[in-house]
Each structure stands twice: as structure tokens, then as C-alpha cells.
Design a binder for these strands. Structure first.
Lengths: 249, 249
DNA sequence: CGCCCTTTTGACTCCACTCAAGCGTCGTGG
DNA sequence: CCACGACGCTTGAGTGGAGTCAAAAGGGCG
């Protein structure tokens, strides 16, 4: 399809998916590795979709037809047990890629935590692109490797850390992620509820709450409203990781 | 180095790395996706190395210079906390790839559980190959995606399952893995110690032992020596997963 | 046969869970 | 503008499942 895009055509495509070239998250997102020409090709395949707070994006077991890129908002990835027990396996923020697992069906459910915009593309189209844009697959592999490291850290946390160590690790990793994305890293913004944090850390809401209180009383953190945490004593907080091999990733 | 390999040279290379073409694990390993010509190129880069039981293959934090393929034996991947607490993030068996995380340093330690043969290659060489063998990177991505799914299952296990559910899940996944590799899937062979199982499941040795006893008393399993488990009541065992969304992966 | 190491069993403890009530905040409607 | 209700968060009291510490039993190997 060798074509030259007219101004009119440009405008139309923009309506469908904004303009990838000046996408807010392009710098940090996976599209950052693409050449302008490739970006243009990609743009035809994507569509920006909005999800309300709490809305399901897809559910575990469904055919994995779409891939996503988080543009704004926040997303939780969830695995359920039939009796309702929930494990959140990850939180996604702007720039994060959703749907790396290339199986026939989704291996987990995804829900918007707050109102969120996602950039959606059909997996079939994407796979065709990957053949012609090898760099893309390379970047995807890097992304997967990174997630794998995070998953292993999380296994260590879930299998071996105490509640205080879990919360300290969580707060520090949120802070570090914010900094990596060029956002303020000290008063840490909690996008998610106590229940979400609990389900991510393998605890109960009550224990998360008690642990927040414990850290506050120890003057390690200060709660500025329910969803803002000031990290007061970074040294103490780092020490609470059980001196983990952190460096995060 | 444009060279045509003479019979003599062939023999020498074979000594270095066996013959990839009739490698015992080629069918299941990552090399299965390579053309004969590519395989030949790859063969020059690899060396077969042996590790004794308990021997370290590499440690977390070391520069990640090598990649491996498990040829025989068994390997455990470990993350440590400074005070000695251990979390095993995975067990590797023949055909499994070791070193997907493409960071500067290893994100975890790897140790041979029993005497093991591994196929080792320098990461630098490998990365050069990946450019010329795109299929290889594709397969690697598939491998990474598969591991990611397994990691998420493990997070669910560590964060939300009881000790009985954990052991039941573990035994079933061992059985399924054996079957996938064309090995007998019912008397399940435990290559690893109770301590290793405990550190994988986020429990203590004592709890693992007690849980084995509990399952044995319930006539769900039978212990035939310390490292062989017969799955007697598969239905009951499956039920103990808390009806997990299993299918394993 | 005897030693050593792993596994099992036992008794007790404790951290996080459960159940339950109280508090604070935000949004809605009068 | 304030009262009310709903929801999420915190706090409290008591329980329980897995951890800890300790010792016995079993298995493998020299």
C-alpha cells in the first residue's frame, strides 16, 4: 500500500487515534523505538479507547484479540480464585504495555482503576507489523524481560517478606517508578485503594491499614490524605526492605 | 573467518559442544526453531559445561555474560534476602532456557540441584546472532511470555493460596510438565529437597512435610520414597487447587 | 554397622486474618 | 448550607494457620 497521505487524510486518521507522533507517552512507551514511517503505518492500526473507573478491559480466559498501551489513568491486572480470592499481579501506568503474553487467551483480567485512556490494536495486525518492524519485537522482548524481573521481585515479596517489608517495598517502588517517569517522587500518589494494595501485597485491607499506621507512628512516612504518602525517613524505609537487593529495576 | 569446515574441524567442534543437530533436547529446546545452517553457526558459539549438585552457576548481581540451555539435570533460580531468607522463583529442567532477562546483571542466582549439563553461550555472541536470525528472537519472546504467565500463577499461589493448595498446585504442575516432556506423569519424581520446595512455595520445610503427610493421610497421594509421589486421587487433588483457573500453561 | 543429613513429628508461639464496630470523607439531596 | 447516607479507611478483640524451636525417625553412603 504505497500511498502519500494528504492533509485531509491526516486529519481523519488523527481523529481515530490522536497523532502518534505527538502522543503524550510516546517517549516512554513502546512506540518510542519506531521510525516516523513505521509510526505512520502503526497509527492506522490503533484506536484510542476510554474506560471508566472500575470498568473491565478484558477478563482472564477470553480470546486475546487486542493489545493495549496505557495512555492515561491506571490499570490493575488481576488473577482470581473461584471463591473470590484476588491477587493483583501488577499495576500499569501511562506508557506501560498491556498484553505481552502471546497466548490464545488472556492469562489474567485487566480493569481500569480510575478513568483511563488506552491505545488499542488488534493482535493480528500487530503480529503482521512485527514481521516488518523487527525492532519492535526486540523492544517487546526487552519489555518482557523487565516484567519478568519485576515478577521475580514480587515472588520474593509474597513468599518471604513481612507485612512491613511488603508495604515499604511497595511505597519505594511506586516512588521510583514516578521518578523514572519524570514525576514527583516524594509525596507518593496512591492511585489505588487499600483493598487493591492488599491484593497486590498478599495481605488483607486491615493489615495494610495497620501497617500504614505502624509506619506513620514510627515517623517513617506521613499520610497526607488517604492517597498521598510522604516518605519522611528514606533511610529507615530502605532499611525496612530487609535490605533487599533492591535497585528495583 | 570465512571457512569451510573439514572433517577434522568438525570433530574438534563436536568435542566442544557435542553436536547440536542431534542434541537430546533440541526438539523441546529453543534451538528447535533453527535451520541447519543456523544451527551450525550457533554450534561454534556454545560450549557444554557441567555443574555438580549444589554448585552455583551464577549469582544475582554478577554481570550477565552468559546464557544457558539446560541439557540434563535440574536447576533452581533463587532470590535471597540479606538475612538468608530464600525465595526460589523457578525450577529448570532439560530444554529450559536460562538467562532471558537481558539486563546488565543477573537478577537472580542459579544453582544446579543435581549434577547437570548446560549448554553455555556468551551473551555478546548471542545478541549478534539474534540480529541475523530473527526467528530466534521471536522464539525467545514466546519463551518469555510463557514464563511471565507462570510467574503470575506463582504470584497467585504465594499471595493467596493455603499450604495444601500450594502443594497440590505444585505436584500437579510437576506432573504436567513431565507429561509435556514425554516423561511418565504419574509417579511424579521430585528432583528437589523439601527445603527447595518450601522456598519455592513460600513455606517452611516443616510445613511442607506436614502438608505431604496431610495429603497422604487423606489418600490423595502416596509417598514412594522421599522423592517419588504417586498421585492417587487426581480428582481430589484438582479440587484442592481451590479450583484454580489452572490449565497450568 | 554406624554416622550424617534429610525428613518427620511434636509442642508452643506469633503474625496476620477474621469478625465487628467506629470514624472520616465525599457526594447528594433537601 | 447543612443533614444524611454510602463507602472506604481505621481500630479493636479474639482466632488460627503457619512459623519456630526441638527432638526423634528414617535413609543413604562410606
Amino acid at each position: 500500500m504505497g500511498l502519500t497521505s494528504s492533509q485531509a487524510e491526516r486529519r481523519q486518521l488523527s481523529a481515530a487515534a490522536g497523532t502518534c507522533a505527538d502522543c503524550e507517552i510516546r517517549r516512554i512507551g513502546i512506540c518510542g523505538s519506531l521510525e516516523p514511517e513505521e509510526l505512520e503505518r502503526m497509527r492506522r492500526l490503533v484506536r484510542e479507547v476510554h474506560y471508566d473507573a472500575g470498568q473491565s478491559i478484558f477478563s482472564e480466559g477470553e480470546p486475546a484479540e487486542n493489545l493495549f498501551n496505557v495512555v492515561s489513568g491506571a490499570v490493575r491486572l488481576i488473577k482470581f480464585l473461584p471463591d473470590g480470592r484476588r491477587q493483583i499481579t501488577g499495576f500499569l501506568f501511562p506508557g506501560d504495555f498491556l498484553g505481552i503474553a502471546l497466548n490464545a487467551t488472556y492469562a489474567y483480567s485487566a480493569e481500569a482503576i480510575v478513568g483511563s485512556k488506552l491505545c488499542r490494536m488488534a493482535r493480528r495486525d500487530m503480529e503482521a507489523q512485527m514481521i516488518s518492524i523487527p525492532n519492535f519485537e526486540h523492544r517487546l522482548l526487552g519489555e518482557a524481560a523487565h516484567e519478568l524481573v519485576a515478577a521475580q521481585d514480587q515472588m520474593l515479596l509474597l513468599g518471604r517478606k513481612t507485612s512491613v517489608e511488603r508495604l515499604a517495598s511497595f511505597l519505594l517502588s511506586l516512588s521510583q517508578r514516578a521518578r523514572r517517569h519524570g514525576l514527583p517522587d516524594n509525596p507518593v500518589a496512591l492511585t489505588m485503594s487499600r483493598t487493591d494494595i492488599a491484593d497486590f501485597l498478599g495481605l488483607t485491607t486491615e493489615t495494610v491499614s495497620r501497617t500504614f499506621t505502624k509506619l506513620r507512628n514510627a515517623k517513617v512516612i506521613a499520610l497526607e490524605g488517604n492517597d498521598t504518602v510522604r516518605l519522611v525517613d528514606m533511610a529507615a524505609l530502605s532499611g525496612l526492605l530487609a535490605g533487599d537487593d533492591s535497585a528495583d529495576s
